[in-house]
């Protein structure tokens, strides 16, 4: 089974960040608090399916595009 990413989360589903697939994107995500081991939850999907809003570590809501979310691998 291939590795799932944040972009494949169901609404309300929680997951733990494992790693990143894109170096440039990973830096931005790290600075925004998306650290490996951190729990994220899909909170909302924009009306046209993209971008999405994820809750990061229970702390705050981060909106990002699907292609950005697909660089975050989850456990």
């Amino acid at each position: 089974m291939s590795v799932r990413t944040v972009s494949q989360l169901e609404k309300g589903e929680k997951a733990v960040i494992r790693s990143f697939t894109d170096r440039v994107m990973s830096l931005k995500l790290l600075e925004m608090g998306c650290v490996p081991g951190c729990v994220v939850r899909l909170d909302a999907v924009a009306p046209l399916g993209d971008p999405i809003c994820i809750n990061v570590g229970g702390c705050y809501s981060l909106s990002l595009r699907l292609n950005e979310a697909s660089t975050i691998e989850i456990e």
Partner: peptide
Amino acid sequence: EPGYFMLEMPT
């Protein structure tokens, strides 16, 4: 460069 969105949603 690729455009990116990544936006903090304030309360």
